[in-house]
């Protein structure tokens, strides 16, 4: 139908683009609200909640720049500029906490990141569905157990008197070690616990990615005589590489997010040296020590750095895969 010319005016009616009678902006909004007020009513509680419980504290962050006193309140306390931040960066404990946070995150990444991938690949190679399902049921479980219980289990297992670990050491004639009071043992125990608790559950993301690989790829590889080992390397891993990279970027973006609840549950003054992280530092200084303004300054620093990291990670992963975090 190439010979068909563009068809301008034919029927007489409404041919010219009509001038739209522009109702006033206010009138348009009123009309819209009259029609759709209900969805705004549905949104209102959530937005109000966010304002009261999450945005109002952001306003409260100003105490990081103030000499906060409970009696004067947030608004009326005097401004003191960056004094708290100066103190903060001259504070050995804070610097130590910052260092510990980064070190523990880095170790967590180094040892913790590959395990779920490995698990997913291994699950994928299991032939018996029953075996696979039962194993998955078991390894997902710790994810749902509270940190208090996990910490309780760790403390019991590593206890110097009755703990299973020391009992086992005893079989080899080794002296019992009071693990949880030794700074050099804190990080391995903390990171090991994290892997034990979360690796299974984290493998779900990769298993889903593997499930998305087209079976025809494997079928043609079988026809070509590939072994399972070769198929894993040549098909499965390359196929889930994008997922791996995105998860890695996200993990790096969240590097300041140490599960400090677990740290609080496991550390003690003897291990602060290696165990204290930024959030536990804030907890002790602020909530236990009452230095709200100083602790808030540490928190603000933490939040800003975390925000920048997360946004950067989000941007990169968006660019990488056109799928963003949220």
């Amino acid at each position: 139908m190439t010979g068909l010319p563009d068809t301008p005016s034919a029927a007489g009616s409404g041919r010219k683009a009509r001038e739209v009678r522009k109702p006033g902006r206010l009138q348009r909004i009123t009309e819209h609200l009259r029609r759709e007020w209900q969805i705004y009513a549905m949104l209102l509680p959530t937005v109000l909640w966010m304002v009261i419980f999450l945005y109002k504290p952001m306003y409260g962050l100003q105490i990081a720049f103030k000499d906060y006193s409970v009696f004067r309140g947030i608004a009326n306390s005097p401004w003191i500029g960056l004094e708290h931040f100066e103190t903060l960066f001259n504070n050995d404990q804070f610097l130590r906490a910052l260092k510990n946070t980064i070190i523990m995150s880095a170790y967590g990444l180094l040892f913790g990141f590959p395990v779920p991938i490995l698990l997913a690949l291994m699950f994928n190679e299991v032939l018996s569905q029953t075996f696979k399902k039962s194993a998955q049921t078991i390894v997902y479980l710790p994810h749902f157990i509270s940190s208090v219980i996990i910490a309780g289990i760790v403390m019991t297992a590593f206890s110097p008197s009755a703990g299973i670990v020391n009992t086992a050491l005893g079989w080899f004639g080794l002296e019992p070690v009071y693990f949880l009071t030794k700074p050099e043992w804190f990080r391995p125990i903390f990171i090991g616990t994290g892997i034990w608790q979360e690796a299974g559950f984290q493998s779900i993301v990769y298993l889903a990615a593997i499930a998305g690989v087209s079976p025809t790829l494997y079928e043609s590889a079988v026809v070509d005589g590939a072994s399972r080992w070769q198929m894993m390397w040549k098909i499965t891993i390359p196929s889930i590489l994008p997922t791996i990279i995105i998860m890695l970027i996200i993990r790096i973006g969240n590097i300041l997010e140490i599960s400090f609840e677990m740290v609080i549950l496991l550390y003690q003054p003897a291990t602060y040296e290696t165990a204290d992280v930024v959030n536990t530092f804030i907890y002790r200084q602020g909530l236990q020590g009452g230095q709200y303004d100083f602790a808030a300054a540490a928190g603000l620093f933490n939040a800003v750095v975390a925000f920048v990291l997360v946004m950067t990670a989000n941007t990169i992963s968006k660019r990488y895969s056109r799928t963003s975090l949220w």
């Binding site: 139908m1 068909l4 010319p5 068809t7 034919a10 029927a11 009616s13 409404g14 041919r15």
Partner: peptide, 23 residues
Amino acid sequence: GRIEQIGTPMELFLNPANTFVAG
């Protein structure tokens, strides 16, 4: 976004107002 022609099916078939309707 415009009306090209209105009519009974046979009217439009036999007497299209323009090339668009005809095609």
